[in-house]
């Protein structure tokens, strides 16, 4: 039994839900993100938000999986601030849907000024409504700078509850600064190109499991919906106890996500 706290199921087929269910996935959370191509109008996002709040929960329920989501305009499509604000104006009408947990995954992609401005407008929206925040950090060479910019920006929000913010896709060069600043950190397991299960387990051993979770972030690209169960297998091989495994793949995500009253 485990929780997949970050998966983009709109890009996956229904047999992935079946595989997740067979592997023991009980709850799955889907942050709003890029769907592999740039949407040409806010109406495209309106339908995407309907899919996240209405269609995917029903599709997941057929396999006994509870589906929650996070809403925002993702950083990859947020570099045009006029367009981004039109999409943001659609978000409030969806925030009262029973499976919406908070604002995410917001963040940075190429560390541009416009991305940062739209990121801060999302953070303000979350602070105003007392919602949890899920943050995407850029990949590869952009991650270190993007993580620094995000942390510097968050430090300017005096009313922000840091325990309600998770900074996702951390790696060995960013995890310490995220945890030291009081935020939760997410480790994303990729088949190749980024963090592997063994590296995630190393970070767990070095930094402890207090404010960490693991996810697959499976999406339209090369990714693995079963990355979390595969990591569980690696943890067993490396002699982690059943209790330690349950802590990281079940109790930790439950603890963070329970800060949303919607998460039951």
């Amino acid at each position: 039994m485990y929780i997949e706290p970050h998966a983009h199921m709109v890009s996956r087929t229904t047999d992935d839900y079946e595989k997740l269910a067979i592997a023991g996935c009980e709850v799955l959370c889907e942050p709003a993100f890029w769907a592999g191509f740039d949407r040409s109008s806010p109406a495209g996002f309106f339908d995407y938000f309907r899919q996240l709040t209405d269609y995917e929960p029903k599709r997941a329920a057929k396999y006994g999986i509870k589906h929650y989501c996070w809403l925002c305009i993702n950083p990859k499509e947020a570099d045009d601030p006029v367009f981004a604000r039109e999409v943001m104006a659609l978000i409030p009408q969806f925030l009262d849907c029973p499976t919406v947990l908070g604002i995410g995954e917001i963040g940075l992609n190429k560390n541009t000024r416009n991305e940062l401005a739209i990121f801060e407008e999302h953070v303000q929206l979350a602070v105003d409504r007392d919602l949890p925040i899920l943050i995407h950090t850029p990949h590869l060479e952009d991650k270190l700078k993007g993580t620094r910019l995000i942390l510097e920006s968050l430090a300017g929000f005096s009313k922000l509850d840091r325990a309600k913010v998770i900074v996702d896709h951390v790696e060995e060069h960013t995890i310490a600064q995220v945890l030291d600043a009081g935020y939760w950190a997410g480790m994303t397991l990729y088949p190749h190109s980024k963090c592997s299960p063994n590296r995630a387990i190393d970070m767990l051993e070095v930094y402890g499991s207090e404010r960490l979770w693991m996810n697959s972030a499976c999406d339209w690209g090369v990714s693995d919906p079963l990355a979390v169960p595969r990591c569980i297998l690696e943890m067993k091989k490396r002699q982690h106890t059943a209790a330690a495994i349950e802590q990281i793949v079940y109790h930790n995500p439950r603890k963070f996500l329970s800060q949303s009253p919607r998460f039951v």
Partner: peptide, 9 residues
């Protein structure tokens, strides 16, 4: 292998 600049572009 990281970009070590500080300002947003």
């Amino acid at each position: 292998l990281s970009d070590h600049s500080h300002e947003p572009i």
